[in-house]
Design a protein around this nucleic acid. Structure first.
Length: 925
DNA sequence: ATGTTTGAGGTGGCTTTGAAGGCC
DNA sequence: CGGCCTTCTTTGCCACCTCAAACA
């Protein structure tokens, strides 16, 4: 395979390894999230060190603070990244990515130990940890945009998944806080007596909830940042002050509903980092550019328990607007950001606007023309949008993870009240900032990106008297909306926000209820992670959720369903299964999109215009409607067509008398020879059409059966083994090496097994693996192969041993010769230059061994048989050389002729002689 | 002003059945 | 000399994606 492909595979497998199996144990979900982030960082780190210059790098500081530090990015363009730039990224007192700090980080980088990340110390370290980003200004002019590579896509998907897991974990924490008995009791104590009666209502309708929601709405307000208290998820303080974040208010509403024995869920939009690279979290790929910056993750835009708010916020005056809850959140964010800029701008109001702009540009994927953002865009424009997004995504994932990591201590006793994530085991990990302002600034860059007015949290209450079978009713206490599930999408869309994941939490579990709120699924389908992965993650959580909320539905007596359930007694629909049906129904009854492009990858509908080359409509109907004059067909009518050969790989063959359903032109690559012969080229064009067949034209592959031990082969004398199904009946595929030689020796008919292709040199070549033989020969072959293998191994062993002996002999012989020469010419300077290479072939194996003693003209003038040589003979019992020579001849090659040999039967010594007088004694083994 | 269509341009993925030369 | 093994080299088309201009 090409290198490109193998790299891709590696990445994919990495990603799967890292993310896979996260659903196995719900109780370790948080751990898994943390580990995933750790791995992610490690990977990002690696990526950053590679040639991918766009990838930010990260490092681990020694003082227990993990600092995530993108290296200075080259500029995308132009001008002035002055103070504004640092405003966008960091306030002055924070670790601004200036040159000196960069240098320091780069130095430290050498000490970074990957295994720290690998081992998940990010999450598990007992010490308080600060996770912080520092965005450094770009300094080098760079290409404006870059297309996403496969690696970028993998990384974006990884970030997306990690972020999802983190947000899921957070949702579960909020949900469990809603179960806190103290919170519930406190709420009940505040509740007017007439409303408490609601707990006795058995037949609940959404209308009945109205006064309750009204009371909530009147008594609890979403607010902006309170400068005195750190922004944490603290239901108690929200309860006390009757004021809290949108998330807290929504959670309080859920807690109240549960206190009244209503079945209620906490619902949250998981506003997650984009699954695509260099995109912010926006729902709609077409247009709405300016809405991008409005997106952010609630984990960041909302002040989390893990980040202190060290800076004062500007007071809020705009409390009672529409979408107040989110406004509160966004205001908070804006203020927080603004404060970090005030030091630079000096004007709070300006600073606020600026900050919004900065944040926008940071989260934005475009340097859009939004007038509001252009003020500061100049500075951020220089940063590539992909980088910005990447930083954002990592921030999101990291901060979200930090919230959920268990096992760490609360930062202070004052904060460790019961209300914030009630039970100790569920307590929020406080990530202690060594430098609070640093961290806050880091977050502020993200915070400003809040979408204005987009509802992110609400409650769902199960009303048994709604519909026939009961219904989950959407209740947004902050905005005083009851049963407004159809309004959510438009509200979210109006705020340019994303509705990709709507998850309901209950009983420590979670369920994806996006379908209930999203009417235009095709718009978000591509923005979601693969359903396989998502479903597997949610599977254990779904069980928990349905366990907590899934009461048996009390069907109304006059309904036929009721009769059915009474009759059988076995079919008792649970709330959960009924909801599944409801959501599934919505999935299958989506209205026809009004724009053509939506049909390109629509799961339900298709128009012919957007079919690909290998797709046809079969059958052509029914027509469900029209879009811009194009008939709309059900997606199930779209069939994939393939060539005969392609179908063959799937063990299917085209039926007799079937005509190709489609023919496409296949540009045959003209060979170089054909370039000179235009006539040939033109002729070949006519047969360049590729015939395609559909699934309905196929039948199971009917290969000729093996007869008389002969393997049926194709026109190339081989068998294409795409899979076991492609084997002719009566044959087997033997994949061991050198099988063919065994088969050949036994004279068994075989065919090489072609298992695929390798692409090399611009062409593809078949890859063979083993042979195909008739099944009856399998055992014989295996047996013979085992024998052969044994014999071969024995032979190899023998050869190795002989070689070892030979080499020992050569070595010792050299040593002895050297010693002998030393003795003889001790005083001669030659001794130090003695050649040691005595080359001699294995005399045992040749009748006329050839030796060379032309040792670089330095051969001793006179050789004598030395006693030591005889000793060596007896000691080694190996071929021995006796150098009883008399006439050294320069460059002479000894030739030992058979007729000069003498053999001493007593000593078993064979003496070979050269015509020159040189003789060699060989001891026969 | 906003949304939609269209086309340009770029990237990733799929395509798919040798030859020469050295060694044993 | 024949069989086996290694090395040679890195296409070109199409689908898909993004972007921007034109259009509704």
């Amino acid at each position: 395979m090409p290198r490109r492909v193998s790299q891709r595979k590696k990445q994919t497998s990495t990603s799967e390894n890292e993310m896979g199996g996260t659903h196995n144990s719900e109780e370790t979900l948080t751990d898994i999230s943390c580990q995933a982030v750790g791995k992610l960082l490690r990977r990002a780190n690696k990526g950053g060190k590679s040639k991918k210059k766009m990838m930010p790098e990260f490092e681990l500081e020694r003082n227990g603070t993990q600092v995530l530090e993108p290296i200075p990015q080259p500029k995308t363009s132009e001008i002035g990244h002055c103070s504004r730039d640092s405003m966008g990224n960091a306030s002055a007192e924070e670790k601004c990515g200036n040159a000196s700090s960069d240098q320091g980080y780069l130095d430290n980088k050498e000490e970074l130990n990957d295994s720290d990340w690998e081992d998940g110390t990010v999450a598990k370290d007992d010490r308080p940890v600060t996770v912080e980003f520092d965005v450094t200004p770009d300094s080098v002019v760079k290409k404006q945009s870059r297309r996403a590579t496969a690696e970028d896509k993998d990384l974006a998907e990884l970030v997306h998944k990690v972020h999802l897991l983190c947000l899921l974990a957070r949702g579960r924490l909020v949900d469990s806080a809603c179960d806190d008995p103290l919170i519930q009791a406190s709420l009940l104590s505040l509740l007017p007596a007439h409303l408490v009666q609601l707990s006795n209502v058995t037949k609940l309708t959404s209308k009945a909830l109205h006064p309750l929601v009204l009371w909530l709405h009147d008594n609890f307000h979403a607010r902006g940042t309170n400068a005195e208290t750190p922004e944490r998820f603290a239901l108690t303080s929200a309860l006390e002050s009757h004021e809290g974040s949108a998330e807290e208010i929504a959670a309080l509403s859920v807690a109240l509903f549960r206190a009244l024995n209503l079945t209620a869920r906490f619902v949250s939009i998981l506003d997650v980092a984009s699954v695509k690279p260099y995109q912010s979290c926006r729902p709609d790929a077409s247009g709405s550019r300016k809405g991008i910056f409005n997106t952010s993750t609630p984990m960041i835009s909302k002040r989390k328990p893990d980040f202190k708010s060290p800076q004062k916020s500007v007071s809020s005056n705009e409390r009672d607007e529409v979408c107040e809850s989110s406004l509160g959140r966004s205001r908070k964010s804006r203020k927080r950001s603004a404060t970090s800029h005030m030091a630079l701008s000096g004007d709070p109001s300006v600073a606020e606007d600026l900050n919004v702009s900065v944040a926008k540009s940071q989260t934005s994927e475009t340097q859009d023309n939004d007038p509001e953002s252009c003020v500061t865009d100049k500075s951020n424009k220089s940063k590539r949008k992909g980088d910005v997004e990447f930083e954002m995504q990592l921030q999101m994932a990291l901060s979200a993870t930090a919230v959920g990591c268990p096992g760490s201590t609360m930062e202070s006793g004052a904060n460790a009240d019961e209300a914030s994530f009630s039970c100790p085991s569920k307590r929020v990990k406080r990530v202690e900032n060594a430098d609070a302002s640093t961290s806050s600034k880091v977050i502020s860059t993200a915070v400003g990106s809040t979408k204005v007015g987009s509802p992110l949290y609400w409650a769902e209450v199960y009303c048994s008297e709604e519909n026939l079978t009961g219904k989950w009713v959407h209740i947004d206490a902050v905005n005083m909306i009851i049963d407004g599930e159809d309004k959510v999408e438009s509200m979210v869309a109006a705020c340019k926000a994303s509705l990709r994941y709507v998850v309901a939490f209950a009983g420590q579990g979670a369920k994806d209820v996006t379908r209930r709120y999203c009417m235009k699924w095709y718009k978000i389908a591509s923005q979601r992670v693969s359903s396989t992965w998502w479903d597997s993650v949610l599977a254990p959580l779904r069980d928990l959720e349905s366990g907590a909320t899934g009461g048996v539905v009390q069907l109304k007596t006059n309904q036929s369903i009721s009769a059915e359930s009474n009759m059988g007694g076995s079919f008792v629909p649970s709330r959960s299964s009924l909801e599944d049906i409801e959501l599934e129904t919505r999935a299958l009854t989506e209205p026809l999109p009004s724009n053509q492009q939506a049909y390109k990858s629509h799961p339900l509908y298709a128009i012919e215009k957007w079919l690909t080359k290998y797709q046809v409509l079969h059958p052509r109907g029914p027509i469900l409607g029209f879009c811009s004059g194009h008939p709309v067909y059900p997606r199930i009518c779209v069939q994939t067509v393939k060539t005969k050969e392609r179908w063959l790989r799937e063990a299917l063959q085209v039926k007799a008398n079937e005509h190709p359903v489609k023919e496409i032109k296949h540009a045959i690559k003209p060979l170089k020879v054909q370039d000179f012969e235009a006539d040939d080229y033109v002729c070949s064009d006519s047969k360049g059409n590729v015939k395609l067949y559909g699934m309905w034209q196929l039948e199971p592959l009917n290969l000729p059966h093996a007869v008389n031990g002969i393997v049926p082969k194709n026109e190339r004398g081989q068998v294409d083994v795409w899979s076991e199904k492609c084997l002719p009946p009566g044959t087997v595929h033997l994949r061991f090496p050198r099988a063919f030689s065994v088969a050949k020796r036994l004279e068994i008919d075989y065919a090489p097994a072609m298992v695929g292709f390798e692409f090399k040199n611009g062409r593809s070549f078949p890859v063979y693996d083993g042979i195909v033989v008739c099944a009856e020969f399998k055992d014989i072959l295996l047996e013979a192969y085992a024998e052969e293998d044994e014999r071969r191994q024995a032979e190899e062993k023998r050869r190795d041993e002989a070689q070892a002996l030979s080499r020992w002999y050569q070595l010792l012989s050299s040593v002895i010769t050297r010693q002998r020469l030393n003795n003889r010419y001790n005083n001669n300077s030659l001794s130090s230059e003695m050649p040691t290479d005595i080359q001699c072939k294995n005399e045992n194996e040749s009748n006329a061994a050839v030796c060379s003693d032309n040792g670089k003209n330095q051969s001793p003038k006179h050789h004598q048989v030395d006693k030591s040589g005889a000793d060596l003979d007896t000691t080694l019992s190996t071929p021995v050389k006796d150098t009883s020579l008399s006439t050294p001849v320069k460059d002479h090659v000894h030739v030992f002729l058979k007729e000069y040999e003498t053999f001493d039967e007593v000593t078993s010594l064979l003496t070979k002689r050269c015509e020159c007088g040189f003789s060699v004694q060989v001891e026969e083994l």
